[in-house]
């Protein structure tokens, strides 16, 4: 993995980083690279409230805020920024204002690498709106000064349309931190993590591969 000057991660929901990016975050931090994570919303509209429910529509944001902080702590991430937008409304925000907010963060942090979603291939409307705004903000920067964009795509047609991911990180070295941060998002991940125990014991290759290999597409303007 290349050594970066500064990494900026931008996602709309707490836990968007958990499965596909948290290992990469931990690797950069272990490499003494500063990492900033901007999380646009608190996932207020999450449908998982626990089963039986331990949260309500109204207590969920407070719970998810704490979970996000715990997940960041598990990765050793110290610059966590919560923007306070509302879940499922990001696409209805003013496009120019959202782009400007991201541009300001880029100016302040001067990242050499930005990690976010891939526009058109990230399924959730908030992911798409976040991805479009990030690409717009970076696109406004003079070509030679642009940070790299490593993006996450998971729409069913991703590989058919944009090809295989060109960046693969083996994060086995920080696997424990990654799993701890996934577990920290308890309200959203508990039922899934519960199905892992048996597979972990048997060293299930599909699961281990999914956890240990993080994949990104480099965005080309």
């Amino acid at each position: 993995m290349e050594k970066e000057r500064q990494v900026l991660v931008i996602f709309p929901h707490p836990d968007d980083e958990a499965f596909g990016v948290s290992g990469t975050i931990a690797l950069h931090i272990e490499n003494n690279t500063p990492v900033t994570y901007i999380c646009m919303t608190l996932g207020e509209m999450g449908r998982n409230l626990g089963n039986p429910p331990f949260a309500t529509r109204e207590s969920l944001p407070k719970i998810r805020k704490k979970e996000l902080q715990d997940a960041a702590d598990a990765l050793g991430l110290t610059d966590l920024r919560m923007w306070g937008l509302r879940d499922k409304t990001v696409e209805f925000e003013d496009d120019d204002k959202l782009t400007e907010k991201i541009s300001e963060a880029i100016q302040e942090l001067n990242p050499s690498l930005i990690i976010s979603f891939y526009p058109g291939y990230s399924v959730h409307p908030d992911h798409e709106a976040c991805a479009r705004a990030v690409v717009r903000a970076v696109g406004q920067i003079e070509e030679t000064k642009r940070p790299k964009l490593n993006l996450v795509a998971f729409a069913n047609n991703s590989i058919a349309e944009i090809g295989e991911p060109d960046i693969l990180h083996d994060i086995t070295a920080v696997e424990d931190k990654k799993i701890a941060s996934i577990k920290a998002h308890r309200s959203q991940t508990e039922s899934m993590v519960a199905t892992w125990a048996e597979k972990m014991k048997n060293q299930d290759p599909t699961l281990l591969n999914a956890i240990r290999r993080e994949r990104f597409w480099t965005y080309k303007f």
Partner: peptide
């Protein structure tokens, strides 16, 4: 809740919220 608000929800068989009226 502690603020006297009425929170009602419809949770599906897996506990996922499908409807809420508050």
């Amino acid at each position: 809740d502690e603020q006297g608000r009425l929170l009602t929800a419809g949770l599906d068989s897996t506990g996922k919220l499908a409807v809420a009226l508050q």
